[in-house]
Simulated scan of single mutants.
Amino acid sequence: MDRAPPNKKPYHHGGLREALVQAGIDILTEGGLSSFTLRECARRAGVSHAAPKNHFPTVEHLKAEIGARGFEQMQRELAAAADAAPSPSAEGRLLAMGAAYVRFATANPAAYQMMFRDQDSFERTPHYSAAAEAAWTQLEEAVAAVIGAERPDVEARAAHAFALVHGFASLIIDGRLPPGLGTDAVIAQSLASLPAALRGLGTA
């Protein structure tokens, strides 16, 4: 009967999938994409370099999982912000969601990076595709509540709102705004005219 060598025990990692995701987030936070590999994630998780293949066939699958979880976390935070908005009106809820979007992005730059990187590749993974679609639906519903769900251009106006908050968040993350312009007060001021702009967008 074969026996394991002395001091060698079969390795079992009951939470390997979660450990790999966390390792990936840590790597992105510390060094960006240049150092992001399945081998490095495996090393940090304490497993062989082949072990991640059981959960993530390629490094793109792991990146997509990080992106999907980012979308899901963002949805939860935006929903909570809308429910806690100072004004319960549709406009107040939308503005609270916009500010929460920027806060989420700047607080979670690693996940945020994966949410919007190489989407054509990521959308081949069902989890990422579903999470991204749900996040977009959340935005469309918030915009429709402001301008009227019967409007035929809800999607275009949702894209306008997205461009504003996404651009603002990206500028802050990339350090391209002058000091002091990334504060909550400035963000709120920048978003204040959004509901009126959405209603008037494209009208003569």
Score class of each variant (00 low, 15 high):
53 K>C: 01
57 P>C: 03
60 E>F: 08
55 H>I: 04
60 E>W: 10
65 E>V: 02
60 E>K: 10
50 A>T: 14
62 L>A: 11
77 E>Y: 11
69 R>W: 09
46 G>V: 01
56 F>H: 03
73 Q>M: 14
76 R>V: 01
75 Q>V: 08
71 F>Y: 15
67 G>P: 00
77 E>S: 11
67 G>T: 04
71 F>C: 08
57 P>F: 04
48 S>A: 14
80 A>R: 09
47 V>E: 08
70 G>P: 02
76 R>W: 04
60 E>S: 06
64 A>S: 15
63 K>S: 02
63 K>D: 01
76 R>I: 01
61 H>L: 00
50 A>I: 14
80 A>N: 02
46 G>L: 06
76 R>F: 01
67 G>N: 06
72 E>Y: 01
59 V>M: 07
55 H>F: 15
68 A>R: 05
44 R>E: 14
56 F>L: 08
77 E>V: 13
59 V>E: 15
75 Q>L: 12
63 K>M: 00
63 K>F: 05
67 G>R: 05
62 L>W: 12
45 A>F: 06
54 N>M: 09
43 R>I: 13
42 A>D: 12
43 R>G: 09
74 M>L: 15
77 E>G: 12
62 L>I: 09
55 H>C: 07
63 K>P: 04
60 E>A: 15
55 H>M: 00
61 H>D: 14
65 E>G: 01
49 H>D: 09
69 R>V: 06
74 M>W: 09
78 L>I: 14
69 R>H: 13
52 P>N: 05
68 A>Q: 10
60 E>V: 12
43 R>F: 13
80 A>W: 04
71 F>T: 01
58 T>F: 11
49 H>S: 11
79 A>F: 03
47 V>S: 09
65 E>Y: 00
42 A>R: 08
51 A>M: 07
44 R>V: 10
44 R>A: 15
66 I>M: 00
49 H>M: 10
73 Q>N: 09
77 E>P: 03
62 L>M: 07
52 P>I: 05
47 V>C: 13
52 P>G: 11
58 T>K: 02
45 A>Y: 06
56 F>T: 03
57 P>H: 12
69 R>K: 09
80 A>Q: 08
72 E>C: 04
64 A>C: 06
61 H>C: 03
79 A>W: 00
51 A>G: 03
42 A>H: 10
66 I>K: 00
79 A>E: 12
51 A>I: 07
62 L>K: 05
57 P>S: 12
50 A>P: 06
72 E>T: 14
80 A>L: 04
59 V>A: 15
71 F>N: 03
73 Q>R: 15
66 I>E: 05
48 S>K: 09
66 I>L: 05
79 A>C: 04
48 S>N: 10
48 S>F: 06
47 V>G: 08
65 E>Q: 13
71 F>L: 00
67 G>C: 06
59 V>I: 15
46 G>F: 02
56 F>I: 07
55 H>S: 11
68 A>M: 10
51 A>F: 11
64 A>L: 04
53 K>H: 15
76 R>H: 08
